[in-house]
């Protein structure tokens, strides 16, 4: 059952992910985290690379990103390692942005899929993934 606080938070993220990103935010993101993936959190590009190492990502790996937002860091990890990624989150707006980004960048090698679901309701069989990543999501 979703609490009122969770509901309000999800609505806030929906609103934020649905915004058009002004150029200034793109510049700010590049300056702060060293990337341009629609992120506004605390995971830098260097830290994302550390996640890739910790998860031993490679082209044969299936990665699940829980709470993927606009695709950071899941899309970046797929692009940089060739792994296959399933992005998951509740706000559709973020997933739409992530899927559009994946299409624009023409991800080579790896596959990208997106599913709108909370972690509790992900529609996959047990043992589907080789790796799971998340960054500062609702716990």
């Amino acid at each position: 059952m979703v609490t009122r606080e969770e509901h309000e938070t999800r609505q806030r993220f929906r609103d934020r992910y649905g915004e058009d990103r002004p150029d200034a935010l793109v510049q700010i993101e590049r300056a702060v985290i060293g990337a341009d993936w629609g992120a506004d959190g605390y995971t830098t590009r260097r830290q994302a690379d550390q996640l890739a190492d910790a998860l031993r990502l490679a082209p044969s790996v299936w990665l699940l990103d829980i709470g993927s937002g606009r695709g950071w860091p899941g899309l970046y990890l797929a692009a940089s390692t060739g792994c296959r990624v399933v992005l998951s989150d509740v706000p559709l707006e973020g997933l739409r942005a992530a899927v559009a980004r994946a299409a624009t960048d023409r991800f080579a090698g790896g596959a990208v899929a997106a599913v709108a679901a909370s972690a509790r309701a992900l529609p996959y069989r047990a043992g589907t993934f080789d790796a799971v990543v998340h960054a500062d999501v609702l716990c």
């Binding site: 605390y42 998860l55 047990a126 043992g127 589907t128 993934f129 080789d130 799971v132 998340h134 960054a135």
Partner: peptide
């Protein structure tokens, strides 16, 4: 969702 031997890595506040 992880297979046996699968890995998770995450940042948390």
């Amino acid at each position: 969702l992880l297979r046996p031997g699968g890995r998770t890595a995450f940042f948390t506040i």
